[in-house]
Write a protein that binds this DNA or RNA. Structure first.
Length: 547
RNA sequence: GCGCCAGUAGCUCAGCUGGAUAGAGCAAAGCACUUCUAAUGCUUAGGUCGGGGGUUCGAAUCCCUCCUGGCGUACCA
């Protein structure tokens, strides 16, 4: 990466002076100044070193400047010092041009990090299979999948997992509710039980069930038959919806099979017991999470001897650690934030390494239409489903909108402003850039150009250098997005890149009479296209050839 | 009450491991299509970064406190 090379050069220059050789160079960082007069890159290294060296920042910067200039090759076009102690660098155009040639070579891999042999488990969505996916799951799905894509691109070995909550009271209630819907379909008296599932979708499930065999034998079945049918049906629907969003999972982790059909819970309880983390009170069994950083203790075994949801979650997460991942990420809705501290405490109690455990909290999205919140359907009292959303808006738009804001920020999704052709629709803006590039690249006889021989030194316009700089900062953006698990950083980056491109496009003709110049500009455009495709792909958004 | 997230331009939001004159899109006002796609570009205007203290060379960013909004605070899952 360009920034790595710059840092390396600075370090090599400074380290020659015994005065600086003991400095902590891991603090040496670059930033891109807002103000163009401050160069391409800037470092505050002199300022942050002034404490330990007991000198004024500005004096240190001047001393460093001398060293930097001594060993200067043609890499830096200019190095200057500004008060109160910034050192600013202008990189030679040739260096930029050289790096640009590299982008085409790397192609789909441009921006990616080297394989780091670290295994990541990322669990997201994990909606209960007692209903259809709705708006509340959408942001979680989009963010989770994008984080997974970004981590993979950065070099991690990523496993995407969906925890299927196919066990417990709710499953029984689901079966009972379905049975009633079957009765309804048979025009018999029906009554959905207290706390049951009243949504319309179970009518569809009932219809589907009635196709499988005659109603008489269906009604003879036990409740578990209905439960199983509903769970299977709804899980399939969920999988289908996710597929429509271009989201697939590597692992569907069944609570029933993995946790309850095995001795997992019993074993974990023994484990907790063995470190004295379990005690009885008021007929229930409690875990001493308060000894491990949580504010309270929690019930793990109810007085009716069944395990709580929390206990199952402990078993599940302990298993995640057992499976040998280097990083375990949970993408949770913000309404689950209170579970974090108790889960962490219980994992600590079981001697798991908490530094491996990470959370992405997703704040709520509201759907706005005509200035009104329409997240909740007035008619049925249920949330807008993902199916409804995808009926009205394409997948690219929906996914982009869901990752275009920091996930810990509340966010209003205004439907009216996202319609096709709307000016307030950034995804079209980005895709349009890609389409415009294609339309140029598709012109005849460009393929005959031998790109490797393009003379990039001809790219001298300010906007061209600006584009190259932006392209070359893509790997840094990916790295940052990866480190902070923040897809929105990629989304913002792409909008900025598209903006510079559109401006350039308007201002400068690419295919000109001068073949050599055309060739160089075509190469620049090809590089932009690569970045747009790679970046959009990280967000699960396509790059149409034409619009 | 306690906990988590948020409060930045009229609106939706970036910027938050402290950096230089606080940004983008939309909306507003005005321009530019005989041109490789106008789903575009170019101007202009728009701010007590919720309030108040503190930390320091420097605070939207860190600390304290208060205010406002959202969410959570089960022997449900």
């Amino acid at each position: 990466m360009l920034t790595d090379e710059i840092i390396e050069k600075i370090k090599n220059s400074l380290i020659k002076d015994p005065r600086f050789s003991d400095l902590d160079f891991s603090n040496l960082s670059l930033s891109i100044p807002r103000n163009k007069d401050h160069g391409d890159f800037s470092t505050n290294f002199a300022m942050i070193s002034s404490g330990s060296l007991k000198s004024k920042p500005i004096d240190l910067a001047e001393e460093m400047l001398v060293l930097l200039k001594q060993s200067q090759d043609s890499f830096f076009h200019d190095i200057t010092v500004e008060k109160p102690g910034f050192i600013n660098f202008v990189i030679s155009k040739e260096i930029y041009q050289g790096y640009l040639a590299d982008v085409l070579l790397k192609g789909v891999n441009f921006g990616s990090g080297p394989k780091n042999n670290k295994k990541v488990l990322i669990e997201f969505v994990s909606a209960n299979p007692t209903g259809l996916l709705h708006l509340g799951h959408l942001r979680n799905a989009a963010v989770g999948d994008s984080v997974a894509r970004i981590l993979k691109f950065s070099g991690y070995d990523v496993v995407k997992e969906y925890y299927v909550n196919d066990y417990g009271n709710q499953v029984r209630l689901l079966g009972e509710s379905l049975k009633e819907r079957v009765l309804e379909k048979l025009n018999l008296v029906f009554n959905i039980p207290e706390g049951g599932y009243k949504g319309d979708y179970l009518i569809d499930v009932a219809e589907s069930l009635l196709m499988t065999k005659d109603s008489e034998s269906i009604m003879k079945e036990e409740n578990s038959f209905f439960s199983n049918f509903a769970i299977n049906y709804l899980t399939e629907e969920i999988e289908k919806d996710l597929k429509d969003l271009d989201i697939t999972f590597d692992s569907w982790y069944s609570e029933k099979k993995k946790i309850h059909d095995s001795d997992s819970v019993i074993n974990i309880k023994k484990l907790i017991q063995s470190v004295g983390g379990l005690y009885k009170k008021e007929g229930a069994e409690w875990i001493k999470t308060s000894d491990y950083g949580d504010n309270d203790d929690w019930v793990v075994t109810k007085s009716n001897e069944s395990s709580t949801y929390f206990m199952n979650d402990i078993a599940y997460h302990h298993d995640k650690f057992d499976r040998g991942f280097d990083k375990i990420i949970n993408v949770w809705g913000a309404d689950h934030h209170s579970h974090i501290s108790r889960l962490k405490a219980s994992m600590k109690l079981l001697s798991n390494d908490l530094t491996k455990l990470d959370f992405v909290l997703i704040q709520f999205v509201r759907l706005i239409k005509d200035g009104q919140d329409v997240s909740m359907s007035k008619r049925s009292g249920t949330y807008t489903t993902i199916k409804d959303m995808l009926n009205e808006f394409n997948k690219d738009l929906v996914r982009f909108m869901m990752v275009s804001r920091s996930s810990d920020s509340h966010f209003d999704f205004d439907l009216d402003k996202c319609r096709e052709g709307s000016d307030d629709n950034p995804i079209f803006y980005i895709q349009y850039a890609s389409a415009r590039i294609n339309s140029i690249l598709n012109k005849d006889d460009l393929n005959k150009h031998d790109m490797e021989s393009a003379n990039l030194a001809l790219l001298t316009e300010e906007k061209e250098i600006g584009l190259i700089k932006k392209i070359l900062s893509f790997p840094d953006t990916v790295e940052e997005a990866s480190n902070t698990m923040s897809p929105h950083k990629v989304a913002f980056y792409l909008q900025e890149l598209a903006a510079i491109f559109h401006s350039y496009y308007k201002n400068t003709k690419v295919l000109v009479e001068d073949d050599e110049l055309s060739k160089a500009r075509v190469l620049l455009l090809s590089s932009i296209k690569i970045v747009l495709i790679n970046g959009l792909n990280l967000l699960g958004v396509s790059s149409p050839e034409r619009m």
